[in-house]
Structures are given as C-alpha cells and as structure tokens.
Design a protein around this nucleic acid. Structure first.
Length: 1213
RNA sequence: GGGCGUGUAGCUCAGUUGGUUAGAGCGCGUCGCUGAUAACGACGAGGUCCCAGAUUCGAGUUCUGGCACGCCCA
C-alpha cells in the first residue's frame, strides 16, 4: 500500500521563534512517497526515491520481527564464528557451560541462566578476548530412567530387569535428545551464542573415559572406598529412593512411641530411659546417646522402686505420662553417663557376640557395643533425653558408628548390627521373629518388652512418615546399603581454601551457603544401583575380592584374557544404528571380564554400580575435552574457567562437584593419598598457591525465578482461573488477585519463553533480566515486567535513532564524507570528514554528551569487569536518558536550523552520530539484536567499508580527555534549575505557555555563575522567560542556614557536633555567610574553646522564603517574577490559541503541509488585540492562510477560552 | 530443628567505607508538547527503611534479640 511518510517533512513556511522564517527549508525537503509492508512484517519503510544516506524508520518497530531478521543475518554471515575468528590469537577468557539436561523442556529459568551466560562472553569478546563457548549436555541419571519408565509404563527395578537392561538403556540414550529441538530453538532465539555443534555430551565414550581416568586416579590413591550408606529404602520394590521421590510421599501416620528401660551393667537397679518411635529397630540397638552438657536426673519410680535416668527437664512430663510420682534423688551431667554400659533391650546380639571389647587407638580397651555415647543432636524437645541408636536405620545414628569406629584400632572395630534383610523382614540375626515385616513387628516387640519388664511407657504418636510414591501402602524404611564413597573429607580444608579465592557474586555465598556446606563436608556417596549412568570402572577379582580401576576402554581391551566384548559386537551387528558410545555402558561393559592379576585362574568382573551423575557434571572441566586421553592443549588452555554461572540450587550440585573434583585432582590436592598407595602420576602438578581458585574463578549465583499472575478468588469446588497479565485480569469477570510465587506447570502460571519472544522479543527479556535487579535476587518472570522494558529502554533508544535518521534524511547528512574511516567507524577515524570538527571546538552540549558518554564507558567497563551487569545497565540507562531527554531535546533547533551547511549543524550531526555508534557498541552484549539492527542502519552508508555486525567490533574505550567533570556537574545544575523553575511555575499555577519576564536563580556560591550565564538561553527557553539573573545574594527571597559538614567535622569535633549544629542553626545564617565570604571562615565559641570553621567545614543551605513563587533544590533556589504584564498576557493568549488551532488541525486530519483558514468569534478585547499583535506568529505556526475575527461556514466550531474557534482546511491545495 | 538469604513508596527494586532532604522505573494525579506524535516531556503526591534494644556526636547501613517470608538441608 502507498501512504505518506509518517515521519513527515516539515511544513515549509512555518516560521519558528526566535530565529524567524525558514522558507529555504522548503527546497531541501523531499516529499517522498514510501512503500510500507503490512504491519509487523518489517520495521522499515522503503523509500521509493530517496538518495539520502539514511532513511527514516517506522515509528513503532516490531522487535520480534527485527530479531528474526538479525538471526537470519547472523546465520547467513556466520557472525558468531567471525567474532571468534577475529580473536584467534587473543588472550583467552574461559567460560564453562554447566550442562543442562535436554530430556526436560526448557523453561523460563533457563532463559535467565542462558542470558547471563551470554552477556559476559559477548562483552569479553568485544573487549579483546577469545572466548570459546562449548555447549554441553547432561545426559545420565535417574530422571532419564524415570522418563523412560513412564513411557514404558514400568517403575521398579524388577520391571526394568524384566524388560531388559539392554533395550532400556538404548531407550535412555535416545530419550536424552527428546527436547533437543526446543533447547536449540530457545538457545538460538534468545541470542545465546554457544557452540552447539561441538557440545560435550556426558554419555559419549570420550567423556566417560575421562571420568574413568579421574576415578582410577582417586582409586589408586586410596580415596575411593566401600562403605554403608543409610538410604530411604523401598523394601517391597528392593530399591532406594532419591530425596525428591521421598519428599513426594510423606503423610501423617500414628506410630508407637515407646519409653524403654536399659539397665546399667554396673548398677542394675538403675536404668536408662530410652525413647524411640521405631520399636522394630530395638533388636539392632548399638548405643544410647546423651548430650554431654545436658543435666540428667536420677529419679525413683514410686511404683516400682526402680531408679530411672533421664533428662532433668523431662522428668515432669514423663511423670505426667506415667501418672505417678518420680522423685529426683540425684542430678548428674550427661558427660558422666558417657561410657556407661547397659543391657540391650533384646539379648540376641548380646549373647551371640558375647559383649566384645576392642583396643582403642588412644590405648586401652572399651566395649564395642551397648554403652552410652555423647551426641550433640540429642534434645529435650521430646522423649527422654536419651536416644536409642540403631546405626543401620538412621543416618545420624550411622555417623555415630563411623565416629566410634575411628576410635578403635583396625580389625577390632564395631560392626554394623542389622537384624533386618533388604526385604524389610527380620533375618536369622533375630531368629524369634524371622520373616516378619518390620512394620508389623512393633506390637509383638512391645509385648515382649512389657513381659520382660523393660517397657516403661507406650503411647501413640502422630507424625509425617514417607511412603513409596509408586505404591501408596508401602512405608519406606531407612536401610543400610553398600555404597562407594570418595574420601572428600580429606580435602575439606583444601576445598575451603580453594573456595576462599573464588569471586562469588553475591559474595555471601563464599562464607555463607557454600562455605558452610564445605565445612560440614561428608564423604561423597558416589555409587548408584541404577542402569543409565557412567559405569563405575572397578573390576573385582572373583576369587580374592581384590580390585583395580580401569581408565579407558582401550586399557580394558588390552587386559589378558579379555572376554565378553562380543556382547557389544553382536548388539552392534544386529543394530548398526547403535551409537558406539553405548559400549562403555551397562549392560555391555558388565560382560567384559579378564584374567585376574591377583590369582591365577580367577577372573576380573566389573562391580555393578553406576555413578552419581553429579560427578559427571563436575568432571566437565577436563572431560569436555576427553582429557587426558586427548586434547591436552585445549584442556591446558581452557583451565580454569574465568566465568561460570548457574542458579543457587547448584550450590550442592555443579558448584560443589566441580570444586571437589578439581581440588582432589589438580594442584595441591593431587599429591594427597592414603598411606601405601600409588602416587598420582597422571594429574598435572600445578603450583599449589598461585593456582587457586580452580576450576572456576568467578561465579554469578542466580536467584530463583518466580512468576507473577492473577488468580480468581475461585469458588469452592471450582478450578482457579489463572491469567497472566493485568489487562486480561481487568477485562475478565470476577475478582482477580495478584500473586507472586513459584512457577508451576500444573497451574500454568507463566508464559512460555516462545510466547514472550513472539510478543516482545528476546532483547526485551534480556534487558529486563540484566537491568532490573541484581541477578542473585529472585527475579519475577512476568508478562508485564518484560513488556515494560520496551518503552523504558528499547523504544527510547529506537526513537532517538529515529529522530536522528529523520533529520539526517532531510538534511542529507552523509557520514561517508569521512573517507578514512576504519571498519569500526571509530571516533578517531570519523575525524577524516571535512565537516567533522574537534570536540573541543563544538558547543557546550556536544562536549557535554561526549563527556557523559565517556564517563558511562568507564563505568560500564568497571562494572562489567566486576561481573556486575546490573549497575552497568544503570549507567547505560542514564546515558540514554541524557541523550534522549536532554541532548536531543535541547538540540532540536540545531537540527532544524535553516543552514544545512553551518558548522554548528554539522557538529550536531557528528555528535549524535558518533554517540549513537558508540552506544550501539556498548549495548551490543546486552541487547544483541537491537544493537545489530542499529549498527546496520547507522553504518549502511559505508557499505562494505564498515564491519557487517556490531558484534565484530571492539568495545569502546573511555577517553579521559573527553570527560569534563566540571561540565557534567554544571549541566546537572542547569537541568536542576530548569526543573526548579517548572516546579515553581506549577506551584504558582503559571503555565509554561505564559511567558514571564524574569527568573532569579540564587546559588550558594558563585563558582558556576559565569558558565550558567553563558547558557541562559537554554534556561530561558526551557522556562519561557525573557531573562534569567544569577546571584549568590538571595536578599529577600532566601533564608540561609548553615549546617556542619558532618562527614568532615565528625571526626574533628566528635561529641560537640550537636552543639556546633545548634549554634550554627541558631545564628543568623545570612550574617554567617557574609562573614564566611569576607573572612574566609567563621568562628564559634564552644564551651571547650573557640572553633574556626572554613568553607569546607560547613554547608550553606538555601530556603526559599514564604511569599515568593520559588522552588528550591539542593544547591539553588529559583524565584519567578510573577508579574504578568498585558504584553506577556497577550503573548500567552496567542500561544494558547496556537495550541487550540493545532489541535483542530489534528482533528481535521491535516497533513503537515495543508493550509487552513481560521476564524475566532470573540468579544474579548484582549484576545482580539493578542491576535492582531501576534498574527504573523499564529499564522506561521499553524499554516493559516486566513485569520479573522468572526465565524466560518462549514467549519468545526470549538470553544476556547474567551470565544469560539473555527478551523477549516483550505481546499484544492 | 539447623544454615543461608530477603524485608526500603501502591507495585518491582537500587542504596558503595555510618554523615543528617532515602532514590529509580512502573502505576497514580496534574500539567505540558503536538515537526520523535498510536510517541514524548515536566511536575507532584506517596516512606515509622519489619519490630525492639545496643554501639555512636550521628544508624536504612554496624551489633544483639525477635517477627514475617523464601530457599537449602535435616
């Protein structure tokens, strides 16, 4: 369709004050007819006949469409690859990608992490570093198995085995890529530049072998060992459940709560009162725990005469339960109980083991079992203050056993007593109840205890207890499983040391959450009894039980008598599609056996476990390269990382796994090993001190992502209605309340990222993430919030460009007159244009915006180098505000000036052009799409001379010589004066259209007066006044008050500050000021002696006196002369009239060049004379051919102040 | 129960080493501009800086103790 340019040419005969007519402008105007695409298909109007260097863009661009064009452009010209190639020999900035798992849909949280992961590498690349960005995928683990299980409709391990491990893991392998397409789309659309083609994948053979190498390294150093881990166990299903699964299955049940008597061996009349809610664990009792610093009481049971020991604080409550008196006969400390032996509640282990003793490491002997131990976790919140410990069935209990074991010499340590089998039933160890399911044994057990006189009290107890999420009726039990551990506790101090050197954002992570986590480090439980994971590379001699670790498939194949590889070969032959990577996975790897080096004739077979997939991710710094088996150069160069970022939930995940593995393998930690083990030959030895931190130097820890939505009150029984924007909620029926909280798939309380991209674009989302809050705060992902960043930033910037191009088109500004430009159009090279004058020769406002630009550059670089995107963005926003709301606004007249060849006009263009170019480079890492669009627009006149993309440019460098701090300060003052003036007008109800004769500006000192005076045209125009006076002598208008400069005087005067303040406040401010101005100081008589204060010690404040139309700021008071003379009033009336006529023009749909006729019907003499007096101005401004007092036929009539207005288009023109 | 974090305007958030008028954006109100125009600008109202104590001449900021919310771990 054809239509007129919306960015219309100026009306040719419209004179403008104060410099009169601009008829000559007419000749320069091209009335171009433009062709527009239907809306949203493009951001541009295509000029049919324009030969100008710049074209005016559409007023209101559709950013998503522009972004798609930029994406296509990046692809077409391989911009990302070029950006890397340009830095081929540059120093590195190393980025590690924390691998996401592609078998789940990407969600908004990933947009944030990926945006942050993008902005710093882009920034650093522009700053001259080579930043490779290797993508990665986390592919192993239970979530994958669960996903596949769902698909197959199977749950338990038995079902998986029945289905077949081989087809199962094949399905896992392909399932991993299920949402690949979505991930790729999101990554691309967001503008996250990352090398997806060469991504590392945790199931790939090279990756697995790197992990194997590291595990062998640890194994050989004695750091990998087998032990027990107490897990939540589903006895019926024969499997352990992850924390997440357990969390799903809690519900409230009643369990028995029993108080049992443990008679002391040395004082049989005295019994410990021990409390438990799981009677079935009592046969496996090993210890009773007390808190050493707690007070315990020995009480006499009035009924039985027995002496009972329990926490003093709980005597009363127990007496209440027993409904009888307990007389305290002695109080003792918990400490004194420690070591006391008792008779366990059931005799089976006791009689079979014969109450053994063991030799202590510290010398001497002690009973292995059934004695009181000290434990800090004992409380008096409930129970008796004495806790029954059955380490087989509780994690805390088990830790006590581990500690106990360290007290005894090797070979004489207490064993784990466990009378329950993996099926949840009692074993031979507790023969009397063999085969009974433990949860059904409680009744029988308590009866037995009652019969033996050991049961003091029984009651029911309501609490939350976990059940299997797959089988509701099956309660879980805590149960010990054999497991492989990494001795990370040995590296605790080194990990802390390493951690202390990491640049955490926010800092509190170091000593807070992460530091605390390291402090309480426990050995890493590495193994998983599952199927789809990195197989634990340990082979066991079937005869001797001795083991060795393998670091690669090749090493395995080279073993003597190797057998079993045909299982893989057959599978591959049967199905050539199978990825070779599967051969290092279950079940194929399990079938590979070889001759034992430990005993002739024996065979070596792999242990059955796979490993925790967190280990996979933590091995990424070297495993992504397949190191050490290959790519040594890449690894050495790309280690450690300069920057990583993930959300806070990775504290115990990727942050820890990386730090732990790196600390153990590299640097100082590499030499640590158990006595009698092999040295670590493979790991590169790095200098211990200088190499911390590794494997990452800086880490931004992102906050949680929340959503905000509108929810209907929802009547009972009805589903809640969820709406995502305020507008929708306003329109909908019923009452909606605003909610902020976690994103929930079932509630659908957030928009999918693709919707956001389509509606507002990736830049809007990115800028919102970067510029609205420090990244570690929780970030609200809401439609409205993201949309807001468009007018706040993107559109503002666009409008500034739009302004520039409109004028550039009209004036034919052509930057290619700079013939010696470099490819980045750097400021220095623009100077080759004949019309480009040195900045120092340009007007104040040009120098000012340059100064602001370079101040901003310094800030942005400073902040970004500190990984502080938030404040960097704040600085950019400020600059844009200055550019758009001051520079452009105040320079309009210069762009509009009739002489298109005047140096001042050239200055204006070159200044705006240069600032736009530099600003475009600055925003490139943050909003890469808009930046590239602008870059291409701004550089279009240069064609191939300029770089194709802004992302190939260098980040601008601040030039200190262009920063004029004084000018920046003065301009701030000037803007404040203008603002004060407007405020005073508003207060006095004197609208800006009414000219005033004068304003007086009273300042505290005269330092800025000269400068201000030379710029008073600016103020005059802003405030529509005829004159501005500057003075420090406020006279009648102002009350001066003097306050101490606290920061300076505080340390000097100390306690006397209030006195000084009071004296200064009570003295006559005007007089003090005079004294200060004449003598250079003021003197106060303090009680402690005289005190001389100079100008620096005190601060002069101004207070406008009552009765003046005045407004005050921090350093100035602006007073209006409110006298309105008849002349001024008439000028005001004329301006009002112009405003009225212009509105009517708009009403009439006038083009800017349309001529009109105007008539005013009024009996107001003043208005009539105003019209006569300002006729020329009125007609000029409004393009009126005719202006009469009277009426006009066929014209709209509207009421104006003092009469009626008629406006009609002049036809035929 | 433990650890960590957060609490500042109606909303979303800034606030550097303690310094005396606590800021921004949005929203709201008033006004302006009408040659950046389905834009834009100005001005304004709006605060017990969660509470209580302590340190200090001075606390949104430091310390102690609460309260509320969130996350992680038990």
């Amino acid at each position: 369709m054809l239509r007129r340019v919306p960015t219309r040419p100026r009306s040719p005969e419209k004179p403008r004050q104060p410099d009169g007519g601009r008829g000559n402008v007419l000749q320069r105007i091209k009335l171009c007819v433009v062709l527009t695409f239907p809306s949203h298909s493009s951001g541009y109007h295509v000029s049919a006949n324009s030969t100008a260097a710049f074209r005016a863009p559409a007023a209101s661009p559709h950013f998503p469409t522009l972004e798609e064009q930029v994406l296509a452009f990046w692809d077409q010209h391989s911009i990302y690859e070029q950006s890397l190639a340009r830095r081929a020999n540059a120093p590195t900035f190393v980025f590690y990608e924390g691998p996401p798992t592609a078998n789940g849909m990407p969600h908004p949280g990933h947009c944030l992490t990926r945006a942050i992961k993008d902005v710093f590498p882009r920034y650093k690349t522009m700053r001259g570093y080579r930043c490779e960005r290797k993508a990665g995928w986390d592919t192993h683990g239970l979530p994958v198995e669960v996903e596949v299980g769902k698909e197959l409709g199977i749950h338990s391990k038995e079902e998986i085995e029945a289905y077949g491990v081989e087809p199962f893991i094949q399905k896992c392998q392909s399932s991993v890529w299920r949402y690949m397409q979505e991930w790729q789309t999101l990554t691309r659309r967001l503008g996250f530049w990352v090398n997806l083609e060469e991504a590392y994948v945790t199931y790939h053979q090279s990756y697995v072998e790197s992990v194997w190498w590291s595990l062998k390294n640890l194994f050989d150093r004695g750091l990998l060992y087998q032990g027990h881990k107490i897990v939540w166990w589903w006895a019926q299903g024969g499997t352990a459940l992850s924390a997440g699964e357990v969390g799903q299955g809690y519900r409230e049940v009643a369990d028995p709560s029993v108080y049992v008597l443990f008679p002391l061996v040395d004082q049989p009349e005295r019994s410990l009162v021990v409390w438990t809610t799981t009677p079935w664990t009592l046969p496996s009792n090993m210890y009773a725990a007390v808190k050493p610093d707690l007070e315990y009481a020995v009480v006499k049971d009035s009924e039985t005469g027995q002496e009972l020991v329990l926490a003093a604080a709980l005597v009363e409550s127990l007496a209440g339960k027993l409904k009888r008196e307990l007389t305290v006969i002695e109080t003792i400390s918990g400490e004194s109980l420690v070591g006391q032996r008792y008779q366990p509640p059931f005799d089976d282990y006791h009689s079979r083991l014969n109450d053994p003793t063991g030799e202590l490491v510290a010398g001497g002997e002690e009973s292995l079992y059934w004695r009181v131990v000290a434990a800090d976790f004992v409380t008096t919140d409930s129970g008796s203050g004495l806790v029954h410990l059955a380490p087989a069935f509780g994690e805390i209990d088990y830790e006590v056993l581990v500690t106990e074991r360290t007290r005894f010499v090797d070979g004489q340590r207490p064993e784990l007593l466990c009378a329950v089998g993996p099926n949840g039933k009692f074993t031979d160890e507790f023969a009397s109840m063999k085969g009974v399911w433990v949860k059904e044994a409680d009744k029988t057990l308590t009866r037995t205890l009652r019969e033996s006189g050991r049961l003091l009290h029984l009651e029911q107890y309501l609490h939350d207890y976990p059940f299997c999420w797959r089988a509701d009726d099956d309660p879980l039990i805590q149960y010990p499983r054999e497991s492989w551990f990494i001795r990370t506790t040995k590296f605790r101090d080194l990990m802390l040391k390493n951690n202390s050197k990491i640049g955490w954002q926010p800092e509190h992570i170091r000593d807070g959450r992460f530091g605390n986590f390291l402090e309480s480090n426990v050995d890493w439980a590495l193994s998983r009894e599952r199927y789809w994971g990195t197989p634990l590379p340990i082979w066991v001699c079937q005869s001797t039980g001795r083991m060795e670790a393998i670091e690669s498939y090749e090493e395995l194949l080279a073993k003597p008598g190797v057998d079993g590889t045909q299982v893989w070969d057959n599978a591959k032959a049967a199905n050539p599609e199978l990825p070779d990577d599967l051969r290092v996975h279950k079940p194929y790897i399990d079938s590979v056996t070889y001759d034992s080096p430990f005993e002739s004739g024996a065979r070596m077979q792999r242990v059955s476990e796979v490993i925790d997939c967190w280990y996979d991710s933590g091995a990424m710094p070297f495993a992504q390269w397949g190191w050490p088996h290959q790519n040594d150069a890449q690894f050495q160069e790309q280690f450690p990382a300069d920057f990583i970022s993930e959300a806070i939930d990775q504290t115990r995940g990727w942050f820890y796994s990386q730090l732990a593995i790196s600390t153990m393998l590299f640097g100082e930690g590499a030499s640590i090993r158990e006595a009698g083990t092999k040295a670590n030959e493979l790991a590169p030895s790095r200098d211990s001190e200088s190499d911390y931190p590794h494997p990452f130097r800086n880490c931004i820890v992102l906050g949680l992502m929340l959503s905000q939505w509108y929810e209907s009150a929802g009547k009972e029984g009805q589903a809640k209605t969820v709406l995502l924007s305020e507008a929708e909620a306003d329109q909908a029926e019923g009452k909606f309340t605003k909610k902020t909280g976690k994103m929930s798939k079932s509630l659908r309380n957030y928009r999918s990222p693709s919707e956001i991209f389509d509606k507002y674009g990736a830049d809007a989302m990115r800028w919102y993430f970067f510029a609205n809050q420090a990244p570690w705060n929780s970030i609200i992902y809401a439609d409205q919030a993201i949309r807001d960043s468009i007018p706040e930033f993107l559109l503002r910037l666009w409008n500034t460009y739009s302004f520039f191009s409109i004028y550039a088109e009209i004036d034919g500004f052509d930057p290619t007159s700079a013939t010696d430009v470099d490819e980045q159009l750097s400021p220095a090279s623009l100077a080759s244009a004949p019309t480009y004058r040195p900045i120092s020769e340009r007007s104040e406002i040009d120098r000012w915006i340059h100064s602001e630009l370079h101040r901003t550059l310094a800030t942005v670089i400073n902040r970004m180098d500190a990984f502080d995107n938030y404040n960097a963005c704040q600085a950019i926003t400020n600059l844009l505000d200055g550019l758009s709301n001051w520079y452009v606004r105040r320079s309009r007249d210069r762009f509009w000036a009739p002489d298109s060849d005047s140096p001042d006009k050239h200055d204006a263009y070159w200044t705006l052009y240069e600032v736009m170019l530099e600003l475009t480079k600055v925003i490139a890492p943050f909003v890469p799409f808009l930046a590239d669009t602008l870059w291409q627009e701004l550089t279009a006149p240069f064609g191939d001379k300029a770089l194709k993309s802004v992302h190939l440019c260098d980040f601008p460098k601040p030039d200190a010589t262009r920063v004029d701090q004084k000018l920046s300060d003065s301009m701030r003052l000037l803007r404040e004066i203008a603002s004060m003036g407007r405020s005073a007008r508003a207060d006095a109800k004197l609208k800006v259209r009414l000219p005033l004769s004068k304003v007086e500006v009273i300042l505290t000192d005269d330092s800025a007066i000269d400068w201000l005076q030379s710029h008073d045209a600016l103020v005059r125009e802003e405030l529509n006044v005829k004159a501005v006076d500057y003075t420090t002598d406020g006279g009648d208008y102002v009350q001066y008050t003097i306050v101490p400069n606290f920061k300076r005087l505080g340390p000097k005067v100390g306690k006397n500050i209030p006195v000084v303040k009071k004296m200064l406040g009570e003295a006559d401010g005007n007089q003090l000021l005079t004294q200060l101005q004449t003598a250079g100081f003021v003197e106060l008589e303090l009680p402690s002696g005289p005190l001389k204060l100079d100008g620096e010690d005190i601060e002069v404040r101004l207070q406008a006196r009552e009765g003046w139309a005045a407004a005050q700021g921090s350093g100035c008071v602006v007073v209006l002369n409110t006298e309105v003379t008849p002349e001024l009033r008439r000028e005001g009336l004329a301006k009002d009239l112009i405003r009225g006529i212009q509105s009517q023009r708009k009403e009439l749909d006038c083009q800017y060049t349309d001529r009109i006729q105007v008539a005013i019907e009024t009996s107001d003499a003043e208005l009539q004379s105003a019209i006569e007096e300002h006729r020329t101005m009125i007609c000029g401004e409004t393009l009126a051919d005719e202006l009469v007092i009277g009426t006009l036929a066929n014209a709209q009539q509207v009421a104006i102040e003092g009469g009626e207005l008629y406006v009609a288009k002049v036809s035929g023109k």
